[in-house]
Design a protein around this nucleic acid. Structure first.
Lengths: 325, 325
DNA sequence: TGATTTTGTGATACCGGTATCTTTTTGAGT
DNA sequence: ACTCAAAAAGATACCGGTATCACAAAATCA
């Protein structure tokens, strides 16, 4: 920068101004500076800028899992909002483990990120203390928590699960099973919603129809095997996670079970795949993209425009009725 | 940091040393410093550290698309190698557009990333100039380029495509079609490999059997429709991209075509899904995870250990013969 | 025209650390 | 006990920018 200043015959300060607040510098001088910049191939050092001005242009994103394709829509949406605003995205994985999450959050704060998006709403007291102490805007995704740290953009797992279960009941299914991942805070909320709906529909919950399965397609296979063994009179299964529903459908196809005749299948999440299998699977359309967009917008509103956007946005969901139910 | 130094009764320099090179500080003093750190809840400012020491702990990753689940394995592997080494990951999307890529690279350099991973091997002269000028280690993924910028960790699209095509020929298929995405530099390499293999196997290439399709499952539907219309005697189709093969298989199922009796299907990439459809799809196992791991390791070798790792790692591939061929 | 703003530019200090060199302390060897 | 090398701690400058205030030049007003 020193060299640019010399070549343009001005002070470093003027160079800085020409680059950051061009309107504050006379046109003639400004053009000399730009000329010098391009002639020397000068690249601004954002690190120094951030340190000096105590404000950075990096947003941190913490995901429970990087391998899960579910999040790619959200990531893409965040990125699409940030880029035109000149912000960048830093990514970290925090599994559902408190210690790891604390380390990740500490690392992000240490990098002085301008804001943070957390996918997940269960945080250790230490994490919460750090986040509040850091005094940066935070958006939580993944569920609507009762006590948000700062801001929230999500749908309610409980409400979505409840709605789909009621939908199945309304279609006339009487013996609905629930398959979900074990040890997953979001799955727990979904189970609550499921049970609420059963009660509301006047069904009696039956523990034989609550199945905990592994991640991935194989989870669906497990669910069907469990149902056949423990509760063969089940007439519908609500697969609350990822690709479990597809795994279940494929397993039914293999066994020659008619879907939805022998067993109806509903999915929690509407991956593109759901529309393409036979029969297509009834699913919840969750606002994955919208969550990312709103999260980024809320952060930018606070950081750039210093506004105070609504603390919480419930982005809802939609039931897509298809051939599998 | 000043406060920590005061509380511990030492100079700032000693605090810095206690945190970065604990072995250089006497145990007694070190403990006093750590005590002060935790008492004050001090978080190290990595920005200042990077600026002062002129070395950062952030790695940049440029992907052609964030929505594509294919990359999630690579991202996860990179992240898994970086975290224990104390490095972080910054993510950007650069579509296959030169201008966007230049902007992204400039932004990363401006953030003084310690190293860069580029998924993609076609770069504009301006990008290459910037990268060489920045003097940071760069790893290219996605293909084996003839003139790498710095380092490479990948498999060869051409070799993989050629190998699968030869595999189909060896299985006795005589009229093999090729379906791939249009306007994709990697797809172009794959097509070259396909044509090489046809020649090697003594087959005559037939333009009616070269199909350009859309992204996603629907691409498979398109491929089958095209084959039926333009070259109904085709006995095998090699789907060179993403989930096209699954789309094709599902379409065959819908039409009641026997797979592989009426038409054999082979896929370029082995997603988990390939093993679970019926019949399971023959696919290339590409080293997605290994690419990420090696990329990160190569960068760290250069950054941390100041070694000069091999410039290029061809990580190969594997043919998984399954029921669809 | 002189007084008063307004606008443009420069001087200086500082953001929060680390590199480097200097000084002090420690401890081994005789 | 004394010398001297090695280890530990401190002083100072600087990384590459920006905030802030001072000051000069230009524009506005009476």
């Amino acid at each position: 920068m020193h060299e640019v200043a010399e070549l343009a015959g001005v002070s470093r300060m003027t160079v800085s101004r020409a680059l950051n607040h061009p309107e504050k510098v006379k046109e003639k001088v400004r053009l000399r500076v730009f000329e010098a910049v391009s002639q020397l191939g000068y690249v601004h050092n954002h690190l120094a800028r951030s340190l000096s001005s105590n404000r950075s242009n990096v947003i941190g994103l913490v995901l429970p899992s990087l391998e899960n394709s579910i999040f790619s829509q959200t990531v893409k949406a965040i990125s699409d909002v940030l880029r035109p605003a000149g912000f960048h995205l830093m990514l970290a994985e925090a599994t559902d483990d408190a210690k790891v999450e604390e380390a990740v959050i500490a690392a992000f704060i240490s990098q002085r990120v301008a804001g943070l998006v957390l996918h997940g709403t269960q945080h250790s007291p230490a994490s919460i203390r750090m986040l509040k102490g850091a005094n940066i805007p935070v958006v939580e995704n993944g569920d609507i928590p009762t006590e948000p740290i700062d801001m929230v953009a999500s749908y309610s797992n409980r409400a979505a699960s409840r709605a789909m279960t009621l939908h199945l009941a309304r279609l006339g299914y009487k013996k609905i099973a629930f398959a979900s991942l074990a040890n997953n805070p979001r799955a727990a909320e979904r189970q609550i919603g499921f049970l609420e709906a059963l009660e509301e529909a006047g069904h009696k919950p039956d523990p034989r129809r609550m199945v905990a399965v592994s991640r991935g397609f194989v989870g669906g296979t497990e669910a069907i095997a469990h149902i056949e063994q423990s509760a063969p009179d089940t007439d519908a299964v609500f697969c609350a996670g990822d690709v479990i529903a597809v795994g279940a459908l494929l397993e039914c196809n293999r066994r020659g079970w008619d879907v939805p005749g022998r067993l109806a299948i509903a999915s929690y999440d509407d991956l593109e795949l759901m529309r393409h299998v036979n029969p297509p699977i009834t699913a919840l359309r969750l606002p994955r993209h919208e969550i990312g967009r709103r999260s980024a917008e809320m952060l930018l509103a606070r950081i750039v425009d210093r506004e105070l956007p609504a603390r919480s946005a419930d982005l809802g969901f939609e039931i897509l009725q298809r051939g599998s139910t």
